[in-house]
Amino acid sequence: MRYFDLFDLPVQFDVDLLTLQDRFRSIQKQVHPDKFANGSDQQKLLAVQQASEVNDAYETLKSPLNRAEYMVAEHGHDVKHEQETIKDGAFLMQQMELREELEDLESSNDPEQALDVFYSDIKKLIKLYTDEFNVNFDKQEYKLAAMSVKKLRFIYKLKSEAEALEDKLLDY
């Protein structure tokens, strides 16, 4: 089943997260294996399968990056597994600079302050490429939209690396 249909939501990037959450819970109340603890083995299996799918659908639509990936995948662009690389030189240059910035963070005078600045840059880039994705997707330029998603993947990866560094700095 298509994830947007499952939650009776329009196929668009902007999702009302509260509605999604609410519908997710309502559906789980119907299909969760706990509702079939008395059922036969087959019923239990069916419930596990359904509940797993609903969980997956929810996780996918909840996260902006997963949602964008899913939207272009529905149009034949499997961003996660596609080998095609980004050829946008300016973007790649920017990525290299950001990566260097992240590497130098640890040894900076005030790493926490530097991290804050880094996070705010990342946030701006996420907004930039999310908007780009939205415009391309609305124009049904799915190949271009997929390229925006690829860029977003890079940015989100940087974000998670920054978070790992933050854990380290905060003695975790």
Partner: peptide, 17 residues
């Protein structure tokens, strides 16, 4: 069992609408 499950999902969403 499968039909019931599909039906219950529909019911859950109708309730919401």
């Amino acid at each position: 069992a499968a039909r019931r499950m599909e039906d219950s999902i529909k019911q859950a969403l109708t309730g919401h609408s």
